[in-house]
Amino acid sequence: MTADTLVKNVTHGSKKLSLEDKLFLVKTKKDSISHITIKHKKCQSCSNKVCLRICPANTYEERDGKIEAAYENCLECGSCKVACPHGAIIWENPRGGFGITFLNG
């Protein structure tokens, strides 16, 4: 066995989960109303669109030039609201009892 395959066997022993796989593991009670509102007008001048990258659950997506939030996937960290330079993301806590429940937090 060459050193390279040895390293490969050691370091890539477990299969890599996709983000979708990971999100599937999160215990969530889905609400019918979104706790995230986007002020689309404010997005128009935004060149950076950091919301598309900062979200650990990839909640934000750009569709036909418009930012949309798949709020059901939200892990409720609030980073998107903090990161948005235009105040375009209105983020409220989900209603009491809805949203995520972490078991191993």
Binding site: L23, L25, V26, L75, C77, F102, N104, G105
Partner: peptide, 9 residues
Amino acid sequence: ETVEYMAHM
């Protein structure tokens, strides 16, 4: 086995 994925500020 990954059993949970979490985020927080």
